[in-house]
């Protein structure tokens, strides 16, 4: 960014915004211009919201999803103690699954996936906490909802090995064709997975 074009305060905002994911310098400049023209109250509200985000949002003590109290709203809801636990890699996956509205139990956020080539092992994830929850919270079924990638499948394999000796039912979400998909345009690996994970009609 050329130093002469904008005053220092504006340059500072553009530089800060262009650090955000998906925001380049041009978009950052447009956003800064919008903030400059916006009413003072709107800008103050945004600044306050950002500060509160940093001050109040933490991880739930039990499931490690985002929370603004000791427990997240899902863990604090007694009706969700159904004995089913759905394991996800990160809070974004939790939000996507929760939007579906099908699952009524509780979640556990691992905080990542095993990654052999990056050296990420079980100790780097919240696996110990998961096993403690399964032992201590009367969990009967654990559903593993991890991406069908090398890392996701390796994590599913590992968790299956660790959870089965605890006497709980362990399942993973189905792999295969997406809804509205077309068999003739689907790649071989996906078709293979769809066939091997077929269900009774």
């Amino acid at each position: 960014m050329s130093k002469g074009a904008y005053p220092a305060a504006l340059r500072r905002v553009i530089a800060a915004l262009s650090k955000w994911p998906g925001i380049g310098e041009k978009t950052a400049a447009r956003m800064a211009m919008y903030l400059l023209r916006a009413p003072r109250g709107e800008v103050g509200e945004l600044a306050q919201a950002l500060l509160e985000l940093k001050e109040k949002i933490r991880l739930c003590r039990r499931c490690f999803a985002f929370a603004d109290a000791d427990l997240c709203p899902l863990c604090a809801d007694g009706e969700r103690r159904t004995g089913q636990l759905l394991v996800v890699a990160d809070p974004g996956d939790l939000l996507a699954l929760e939007k579906v509205g099908w699952f009524k139990g509780q979640y556990h956020v691992l905080g990542g996936l095993l990654s052999p080539l990056e050296g990420v092992g079980p100790d780097d994830l919240r696996v110990r906490e998961l096993l403690e929850r399964v032992r201590g919270e009367g969990i009967q079924e654990v559903i593993l909802a991890l991406n069908p990638s090398l890392e996701g499948e390796a994590t599913t394999t590992y968790l299956g090995q660790e959870l089965r000796p605890l006497g709980v039912k362990v399942s993973h979400i189905a792999y295969g064709l997406p809804m509205g998909g077309d068999i003739k345009y689907t790649d071989q690996q996906t078709l293979k997975e769809a066939l091997s994970h077929r269900v009774e009609a």
């Binding site: 095993l114 990654s115 052999p116 080539l117 050296g119 990420v120 092992g121 079980p122 100790d123």
Partner: peptide
Amino acid sequence: KSWSFWEK
């Protein structure tokens, strides 16, 4: 990096 994964 993958040595540590092998060890684990």
